[in-house]
Amino acid sequence: MRPIDIARKLKISTSALRNYEEKGLVPPAQRSASGYRMYTKEHVAYFECIQAMSPGFGMEATTEVLRLIQAGQVDAALWRVNEIQTNLQQDKQLAVRNMQMLTDTGATGDNAESGNSDEWMTIGEVSALTALPSSTIRHWEKVGLITSFRDEQNGYRKFNRSHIQKIMLLRTLRPAVYSLSVIELKEAIAQMNASDVEEARKIASDTLRYLDHMNRVQMCGVHSLYQLCRILQLVD
């Protein structure tokens, strides 16, 4: 097949096809006598797999998986996909816990804007509680997603329950594939009124819906990957 025919079928540019080939996502194409690339049905399956997998798994993981497929390491490729899906399942469980926490709380009892709280935690304690590196929390503060307070005596960061709610919501989205939906959710979390539990519940609910969507998108990617493996006769 000619590159232009595949590009039209998949609604992408021929330069994108060349880019995928140059990056090693698909096997090198043979050349015609006049020097033009000549693609086979296997190449088409690779290109379709890229389009199906990248929205749910990201281009970096998709590249890794398809290079493993070309090397004949089908089990390594499938386990890598399984690992990413497991992470999504863990994100879903965290999001459910966030929603339950907000439902049980009823009201935060904290005011992160004024700094009033019955209990403060250090960044190390928050890191242990949320299973996030302290560096990630500091980065989120640097880019304006969260705002901590400083201890007047030692200048150390301190966090209350409202801060932790934001951090937990952000943690749910941390491994998510970059998309407009993720940007919008992160901006909503950053702007969330710490005393507005209903707003927090809505964001948590939106996050759950996003994860449900990602689960369906990933399943489409897995289906396309398995179809590619069948065409390559790597699986029955």
Rank of each mutant, 00 (worst) to 15 (best):
I137T: 10
N160P: 12
R157N: 00
G144T: 09
F159G: 05
I164W: 01
Q153M: 03
K166Q: 15
S148V: 09
R157D: 01
Q165L: 12
E152H: 01
G155S: 03
R161C: 08
G144M: 07
H139P: 12
Y156E: 04
R138V: 03
V143D: 09
H163Y: 09
R150L: 01
V143W: 05
Q165C: 15
K142I: 02
N160T: 13
N154F: 03
F159Q: 04
Q165E: 15
Y156R: 06
S148F: 11
G155M: 07
K142V: 04
R157L: 10
I146G: 12
K142S: 07
F149G: 00
R138F: 12
G155T: 01
F159Y: 15
L145V: 14
G155A: 02
K142P: 11
S162N: 15
T147V: 13
Q153K: 00
F159H: 10
D151Y: 07
L145R: 04
H163A: 03
G144K: 12
F149R: 05
E141C: 10
I164M: 13
I146M: 06
D151G: 05
W140N: 12
G155E: 03
E152G: 02
K166E: 05
S148W: 04
R138Q: 14
S162C: 11
D151M: 01
I137M: 15
F149D: 00
D151A: 07
K142N: 12
K166H: 13
I137N: 04
I137W: 15
W140F: 09
Q165D: 12
F149Y: 05
W140K: 04
Y156S: 02
E152T: 00
R157Y: 06
G155L: 04
R161Y: 00
H139M: 14
K158V: 04
Q153T: 05
R157K: 06
K158M: 13
R138D: 04
K142E: 14
T147R: 15
K142L: 10
H139Y: 14
L145C: 00
L145S: 02
K158L: 07
F159M: 13
T147H: 12
R161D: 11
I137F: 15
I137K: 09
Y156G: 10
I137P: 02
F159N: 08
E152N: 00
G144A: 07
Y156K: 02
E152Q: 02
F159S: 04
H139E: 14
H139D: 14
W140P: 11
Q165N: 14
H139K: 14
S148Q: 01
Y156Q: 01
N154K: 03
G144W: 11
E152K: 01
K142F: 06
S162L: 14
E141R: 06
F149E: 02
E141Y: 09
W140Q: 05
K158S: 10
L145I: 09
Q165F: 13
Q153S: 14
K142C: 08
G144S: 09
F159C: 03
